[in-house]
Design a protein around this nucleic acid. Structure first.
Lengths: 148, 148
DNA sequence: ATTTATGCAAACTATTTGCACAAGA
DNA sequence: TCTTGTGCAAATAGTTTGCATAAAT
């Protein structure tokens, strides 16, 4: 039982078939702990890996990982889309000029930069709450539509 | 002093030169009160207007209006970018399946849908706080860098 | 007269897709 | 073997840009 086997198991548990390129991607994503990375960067980093992975596959895999809950897609004000290996409930500071992302933990009791980093000020706050139809009601609505 | 003159004045006050196409765009944006619209929709609506405006110009003008504070660019989870004529401090519900946007007023004392609309549930909450360098400190940092 | 905006088409970036081939269960 | 993933290249969507022309101050 080695590291790769653990990673393969990790993917399997999440319903993601552990192919060679997915493992390569998972390794880059999770080896160094929490990170924020975009498809292109990931692709570049994979260049150093033994396994060849095309850019299209990087996109497809990131999307699959997001759907499986292995990573979380984060859109930074529409200017940048990246994937966060921390899937817990948290938000982000984004320093546009430096293209830097800083996590904001939901509970800041642990002391990890919950406040604005020194030397910066807030220029904009954007909160978007995504809604989906409540299943029970969707059914009811469907019935209504069928009768209309 | 007619409506167009008022609109022209409105643009001027915000440092935006009131050209013919900018007035046409402003009319579509502001005539019917608060709205959320994207560049392409706006372009289509302008088709009905007497003034010809190219799509590239729509993009440029929206960007200019945003910079001038006439509208506010809103990115909905990286899936959609639109412009909100309400520049006040507020956030958004986004129903992906219906491509519908609902304002969340900062103060919900006025009773305008501060709660989740009936039949929906939250699927995701994304908050991004944009930071910029604090001017005073930027100066200090610049000095430090100069000495380093 | 001088500055700034517009139109158009072309360039560009980010992302997705179709299809033949390869790999995993 | 059967299903699902991958590579590639091409398609697509959204947005920006260069340059000659036109309009605003």
């Amino acid at each position: 039982m080695n590291y790769d086997d653990d990673m393969a198991a990790h993917l399997s548990v999440h319903g993601v078939r552990p192919t060679r390129q997915r493992l390569a991607i998972a390794n880059v994503l999770f080896k160094d702990g929490g990170r924020h990375i975009d498809a292109t960067c990931l692709y570049v980093e994979l260049g150093a890996s033994a396994t060849k992975v095309s850019l299209a596959t990087v996109y497809n895999v990131l999307k699959a990982f997001d759907k499986a809950g292995l990573v979380r897609r984060v859109a930074l004000g529409g200017e940048r889309v990246l994937y966060d290996t921390d899937t817990s409930n948290h938000h982000h500071f984004f320093v546009v000029s430096e293209d830097r992302v800083i996590d904001i933990k939901a509970s800041n009791a642990d002391g990890t930069s919950p406040t604005i980093p020194d030397g910066y000020r807030i220029s904009r706050v954007e909160t978007v709450i995504h809604l989906v139809q409540d299943d029970a009601r969707v059914f009811a609505a469907g019935t209504l539509l069928g009768n209309a």
